[in-house]
Amino acid sequence: MGDFDFSVIADNLPFLWQGLQLSLWLTLLAIIGGIVLGTLLALMRLSGLWWLALPAAGYVNLIRSVPLILVIFWFYFLVPLALGRPIGGFYSALIAFVMFEAAYYSEIIRAGIQSIRQGQVHAAQAVGLSYWQTQRYVVLPQAFRNMIPILVTQGIILFQDTSLVFVVSLRDFMTASSIVARTEGRLVEMYIFAALVYFVICFAGSLFVRRLKKASTA
């Protein structure tokens, strides 16, 4: 414990910062992709048309019963095979995260849509709005406003999940920390540092969610 060496962190800060940037980019893009695809899945499930609802429900339940690591392995294997050429680890990982998180986002969004009272939908139809107009101008804006805290919470979970790209050696913050830890032989310092960085970011995020919740109930 006495020979704790913090200089190893300072020396490798640019490398670690690159890793963290990749983690943050992956998180941001996966959140956007996940919410878009998740909204689509939620609308399919609530469409009342069985040939839309059934595949969406099947997809969501399938993804929600397998581990993220397995999904990452799947897409690392499938994406280059389907495209016939390698497209790089980052895009394979991004596709895996979007497909995986969409299932979780769709459950949140579905609950959010269902929390909008039916009277609003009837009123929208009564004034002559089409299905898509009703969703676009009446249901989704209100649903998303109610859902913001949960969506952000899911975003924090997603940020933590990005550390799993470690299993395919994509250089995010976790993999970068691990590379430094091994090459410098400083496992204790590096993993404690990694834990601290993740903690600070995620804890700040959860404080932000708490403020959002207070703001929405006030």
Binding site: M1, I156, Q160, D161, S163, L164, F166, M174, S178, A181, L187, V188, Y191, I192, A194, A195, Y198, F199, C202, F203, S206
Partner: peptide, 22 residues
Amino acid sequence: EIFRNVPLLVQLFLWYFVVPEI
């Protein structure tokens, strides 16, 4: 707060690589 805000992967590494050292 601590256990929820650190990724599980990092926690496993802490238990596996760091705890035996400290």
